[in-house]
Simulated scan of single mutants.
Amino acid sequence: MGRKKTSELDAVATKQSIVATAERLFRDIGYAKTTVADIAKALGMSPANVYRYFPTKAAINEAICDRLVHSIEAESWESLGEEGTATERLTRFIVAYHTIIKRSIIKEKKLYDMVAVAMDEHWDVVQQHSYRMCNYISIILEQGMAAGEFRRMDGYKMAIALHEALTVFLYPSLLEHRVNESDGGSSMLEELEQLLDLLFYGLSAKA
């Protein structure tokens, strides 16, 4: 039993090392230019050994993306704080998410390219991320309904509708086009805030 547990721990540690090394190379070289052989060389192991833990480079990328999107979610959720109305808190959450994605496009282009591949290929990790984002939004909507701030509705269905309405400000590939077409400055944020004002007006219990 002790040997088996140690072996399992070693396997987890090796997988974590592969993911961490791959992420560093993807940041430095870029996803497209990094090969499994590069990852193996940096770890001092053979490519065949890497393939024991991950069947493809895409599988490594998926593991990295899973870690990254959880980090983005956590940072966005922390922006909520405990003060303010549901409208104010949901605005902070969405603006924080938008800002993090935009920052990655502008300042961490190589890492963003890796996430964009995952988004465009509709990997399960990205779909699960979208589900969680809708869950976060629905939680805040439910809180707003309980406080009498929002009209009664199906919170999760409305969360999906809001998420889709905001896609151009949240989805990396679409946001990249907006960043390239603009100065990447405050104008895009102002547009997002104006759209949120419109959406929240429709949600208001007083509308």
Rank of each mutant, 00 (worst) to 15 (best):
A165R: 01
K5W: 13
L170Y: 03
G144R: 00
Q128W: 09
Y131W: 09
H98D: 01
E78C: 10
E193G: 10
R3T: 13
A74F: 15
Y131H: 14
R132V: 12
R132T: 13
V179K: 03
E149Q: 04
K110G: 08
A32H: 11
R152N: 10
D124R: 07
R89Q: 08
L199F: 06
E121H: 03
K4C: 08
Q128R: 12
T34L: 01
I105H: 06
E149M: 07
H177P: 00
W123V: 04
D124Q: 12
D197K: 06
R103N: 08
A161D: 09
L166K: 01
S46P: 03
N135P: 00
I105W: 04
Y97L: 11
A159R: 00
S130V: 08
R27I: 12
A146G: 05
E108H: 14
K109S: 15
A32R: 08
L175H: 02
M45F: 14
G148R: 00
H70P: 00
M114V: 06
H98C: 03
F150D: 04
Y131E: 13
G84Y: 05
E181G: 13
H122W: 07
E73K: 06
T21K: 08
V12R: 12
G202D: 05
S79Y: 10
L189F: 10
G202A: 08
E78P: 05
T167V: 00
I60R: 02
H70M: 11
R152C: 08
Q128D: 13
T91R: 10
V179L: 05
K33A: 15
Y31P: 00
E142C: 09
H70N: 14
L25E: 08
M145Y: 05
A74M: 12
T99R: 13
M158N: 09
A161C: 09
E121N: 11
G184R: 00
M145E: 06
L9H: 14
D113G: 08
Y156G: 02
Q128P: 03
L80G: 15
L25I: 12
L170C: 11
F150M: 07
L196E: 04
A48I: 00
T14Q: 13
A74W: 12
T91L: 00
S71C: 12
V126L: 00
R3S: 15
V36M: 14
E88L: 05
K4M: 13
Q143D: 14
A42L: 00
L203M: 15
L199H: 02
A48Q: 06
D28G: 04
S186W: 11
F26N: 03
R151H: 15
T99A: 14
L192G: 01
Y156T: 07
Q127G: 15
K33Y: 10
K57Q: 10
I39Y: 02
V95F: 02
A74S: 15
K110A: 14
D66Y: 08
A58L: 11
M158A: 14
L9Q: 15
M145A: 09
K206I: 11
E82T: 14
A205N: 09
A20S: 11
L162E: 02
A11G: 05
G148W: 01
L43F: 12
T35F: 09
P55Y: 01
R151V: 04
S187Q: 06
H98G: 03
A32Y: 10
Y112T: 04
G184H: 07
I160N: 07
